[in-house]
Design a protein around this nucleic acid. Sequence first.
DNA 1: CTTGATGCAAAATATTTGCATGCTC
DNA 2: GAGCATGCAAATATTTTGCATCAAG
Lengths: 148, 148
Amino acid sequence: MVEYPFLLDEFTLLLKKNGLKFTRQREAILKALYEHDGHFSPEEIHRFVSEANDDLNIGIATIYRTLTLLEDAGLAESISFGKDGKKYEIGLKKHHDHLICTACGTIVEFSDDVIEARQEAIAEKYHFQMTDHTMKIVGLCADCQTKH
Amino acid sequence: MVEYPFLLDEFTLLLKKNGLKFTRQREAILKALYEHDGHFSPEEIHRFVSEANDDLNIGIATIYRTLTLLEDAGLAESISFGKDGKKYEIGLKKHHDHLICTACGTIVEFSDDVIEARQEAIAEKYHFQMTDHTMKIVGLCADCQTKH
DNA sequence: CTTGATGCAAAATATTTGCATGCTC
DNA sequence: GAGCATGCAAATATTTTGCATCAAG
């Protein structure tokens, strides 16, 4: 959907704008998020980054710090459900929402224009200046319904 | 919206159905959720229950266990956003969604039939058997927009 | 009485922070 | 060079668990 170079550009721009530094660690984390499609915990992301960069000894604290940074900037999004903690995914995709299976944990993404439009209308109605929105539908996926 | 006795009925029924026991602690937690309108962390709920029941020395573990129980049963719902952890509120209200202000943390509830209907259609399209759904719109509330 | 529930404290997780040192800019 | 970023480890915070005891059914 979005090309990596573009994402990287956004990122460097953002850093510059805030007087922050571009580091190998930050790049590696952004890239890991870009290359893995799905939703991951900070630990998982840590693993990805470590595996992809033998030479780079990255600390978990940096993962947390960077994820927060990316989320605030809108380059990453977090979602959480049930017992599982927060999971992150890359931002800047076409906006989409999630279907989550309570049995197997599968997350399906979807996008719906009617809902998108409606959300804007609602934000306006309540005088909110909307910066983001998310929707989750939870239930049983087709597979898990069968297994019962 | 929903009367407490009704809620309590649902609860006892649920417990019975699963061979679980009705205890003072569980009642107290349900009631605390019912009496406090809003979204609270397990700690906060623990405080509520403790303050309302001097004689009842309730442990935080029981709060966690009961909240999980209530959430699984649909009698409570959790929502999480940004740095804050999971927050719970009573379920069985008319279904509603949330507007969350990123600056002051205010949570406004709203309900929209168009969206409700659309969610059902989407669940069906993906062959999900929907058990719940949530929507969050995050942004700046009217107040916080002014303060800038 | 039988079995699940509770409180407590310990254990397991998850997340944040302080600080010396290393790297961008 | 100046100042932010990093890794590490310690400090916190958050949740979960084991277990002896209690209490609901």
